[in-house]
Amino acid sequence: MSVSWAVHRTRLGPILGALGRSRELTLTGVMVVLAVLVTVRAPNFLAPDNLNQVTVLAAIIAIAAVGEALVVITREVDLSVESTMGLIAFVVGAVLREHSTSVPEAWAMGLGLALVLGMVNGAIITIFRVPSIVVTLGTLNVYRGLVFFVANGTQISLSDLPAGYTNPATQTIFGVPLFVIVAVLTTTLAAVALHSTRFGRQLYAVGSDREAATVMGIHSRWVIFVAFSLCGLLAGVAGVLWGVEFGTIYATSASGVVLQVVAAVVVGGVAISGGSGTVVGAAIGALFLGLINNALLLLNLPQELLQVIYGAVILIAVATDAFVRLRARGTRQAVVP
């Protein structure tokens, strides 16, 4: 209520309203401005090495964020992605260390496991009809425990892995890092699926109004189950890439990453209340967070500020969402004769 009061009294209304309409465009604009500012102060921002590093890390988070976005669009949330990432990264490494499997086989096993982990989340949530936040809080712990079980006090180091295993992380195609290409492809695929398939639209319908979706004959629980399964799978992809990027994998790898993933989703304009937002937004959100991280480094600002900025960015994003909706409601009331 106090928000609406503030809105009608300030001139911020139209500006913030425009900002809210296309989060993807806004974020891109903000990133360009930020990039220009950083370049002015620290020209080595544009150095290929630096750009590669920023985008490769952002690409990993972006892939996980795309999966998370699928879930959030259905008005659920998956907190277990970081444990899935850590587990897959470790399991792939352990398989390569202890068995004579080929790299593609190890990756396929990792992705298969990731899909199963996502399906377990989805099954518990849809069969028992329990809130996803609680279930995935539980599996966040359980899956992390599995990493420790697999690790059994060890870690994966470069020497455990086939020679040149981490090379893809630095590989580029026409100057574009391979990981970025993977992330762009994943995002594009998901975006097209969300935009142009019936199932994609059903995700939005379920998140927008589950009851109305059911009335239309959409099988909401199946839709949610699939969303969690895909989220698990994409977390697995991110986990595999994580392993390739770092080469050294601990049982605690990727701990705390869920905050970045959810932040990327929220900042990217996917409303936590479901039914809106795009995976492209989530991916751009991941890049935006990566850029902030890099800017702090290059500008020699204290790294501690990173969390402060992440927090502030999440709060600004969610406030903008609420604000845009409030305005929308306001116009509706005003139009009724």
Binding site: A213, A271, G275
Partner: peptide, 16 residues
């Protein structure tokens, strides 16, 4: 009206 507020007008008409 029982529409999906986040979807477009056209999509609300043709969702099914």
């Amino acid at each position: 009206p029982r529409l999906f507020p986040d979807l477009s007008v056209a999509e609300n008409v043709f969702l099914a």
